[in-house]
């Protein structure tokens, strides 16, 4: 770092940008690697089952596989529409 460097602030070198972008995308892709092949199918089938009872959109179903010291956790969350009541069958939801 020279003394005058702050006077001529240049944009970040493109290699630095490339490294940062790759660091993020590679980490993201690694986290979904391993058992992802059946996840989209599982999601669709779950949607079919859930739809029998509640009207939800496919985006409302979130599936994640997490690895934690040798254990694998399949995490599933379904965001129910606001006006769905427990026990009601297939309400017309927005």
């Amino acid at each position: 770092m020279g003394i005058l460097d702050f006077l001529k602030r240049r944009p970040e070198p493109s290699a630095v940008v490339a490294k940062e972008r790759l660091r993020i995308i590679v980490a993201q892709e690694r986290s979904t690697r391993g058992a992802p092949d059946y996840l989209p199918l599982l999601r669709n089938e779950l949607l079919e089952v859930i739809k029998k009872y509640v009207h939800v959109d496919i985006e409302a179903i979130n599936i994640n596989v997490e690895r934690d010291s040798g254990h694998e956790i399949l995490e599933l969350s379904v965001a129910l529409p606001e006006n769905s009541k427990p026990g009601s069958t297939a309400p017309v939801a927005g």
Partner: peptide
Amino acid sequence: RVAVGEMLSVKDVEDIL
């Protein structure tokens, strides 16, 4: 090109992968 920040360095690639 690595020297002027236009290309990923050996270390960059090793770090990422």
